[in-house]
């Protein structure tokens, strides 16, 4: 099982046969997707599907909605996850393990069922409205779902554990003495966070952003159940078109566009991360 001599150059490829077969099949499938999206009903090459996706407002809307919700979800999860991750760092090992267990418990419970739980909470006659009316704070129920707010709550609930895990891992790699040194030099807790902790946790933030993006793009249940048909995100759009055969080629174009957008965003995040690391490295040295 070890690389020995030149005669074994073929060995790694033998180990990879099953993985190669599997990756070949999904690459082939992806190629099929692209091919389908570029084929017109007569069998020729055509960009018609892409033109329609990008110019017809009704088709473009799900992509725009998904991106908008992805950005808002990222901001909200980051804002909520930072305090939690920072707090987890200061905990005793026992408390930390407890919080970690609770997060893992939530994370590994069924996403679909958590969305169902949110329906129970946010519905017109749901727990939250019942509670508000029972306490007399309001006479009529609030509209907490079947709008973008409801979808957003679902997306944040789904993505939050991932962001916390990513930030917790990044913060765990920061040497505590760096922050202590900054604090001893007279930095207020907020300044220490802004100038030391935040920059050093950027790799974790970047990982979190990518994870949240993927969760949001993959979201189909949250918009369907909490949006109540009023909010159409990209996964719902692609699925609804793909199931009816007549619009399947439009769905393939939509899928290719989503894939391209996701890849571009991931590349952009990494580019920014690289530049940031470079700049931060330089300023760090400059300060001596």
């Amino acid at each position: 099982m070890t690389a020995r001599g030149k005669g074994l150059a073929v060995a790694p490829y033998l180990f990879l046969i099953p993985a190669l077969a599997l990756t070949a099949s999904f690459l082939w499938a992806l190629w099929g997707l692209v091919h389908e999206s570029l084929t017109d009903p007569a069998g020729g090459v055509s960009f018609e599907n892409y033109r329609r996706m990008l110019t017809v407002p009704e088709y473009r809307a799900p992509i725009v909605t998904s991106l908008r919700l992805a950005v808002i979800t990222t901001l909200v999860t980051a804002a909520l996850a930072y305090p939690v991750a920072l707090h987890m760092r200061r905990m005793t090992p026992v408390a930390r393990l407890t919080v970690q267990s609770m997060l893992v418990l939530v994370f590994f419970s069924d996403y679909l069922l958590r969305m169902f739980g949110l329906i129970i909470l946010l519905g017109r006659r749901g727990l939250l409205n019942s509670l508000l009316m029972w306490t007399g704070l309001t006479d009529s129920p609030f509209r907490l779902m079947h709008n973008e707010l409801g979808v957003l709550v679902g997306l944040v609930s789904g993505a939050l554990p991932l962001m916390i895990f990513a930030l917790d891992a990044a913060l765990g790699r920061i040497d505590r003495s760096t922050e202590q040194a900054a604090a001893l030099l007279g930095g207020s807790p907020l300044r220490v966070f802004w100038h030391v902790t935040l920059p050093l946790s950027v790799p974790g933030l970047a990982a979190g952003i990518v994870l949240v993006l993927l969760v949001t793009v993959n979201a189909m249940v949250a918009p369907a159940l909490l949006g109540g048909g009023f909010v159409v995100m990209i996964s719902n759009f692609v699925y609804d078109r793909a199931i009816g055969l007549d619009e399947r080629s439009l769905a393939t174009a939509a899928a290719v566009i989503v894939f391209a957008v996701v890849v571009l965003i991931i590349l952009a995040v990494h580019a920014v991360l690289d530049r940031f690391a470079l700049r931060f490295g330089v300023t760090d040295r400059g300060r001596g």
Binding site: F26, A29, L30, G32, L33, L214, V217, N218, M220, I234, S235, V238, Y239, A242, A251, T252, A255, V256, V258, F259, V262
Partner: peptide, 8 residues
């Protein structure tokens, strides 16, 4: 994205 893999 899962829709890409599923649809592909």
């Amino acid at each position: 994205p899962e829709v890409v893999l599923g649809l592909a």
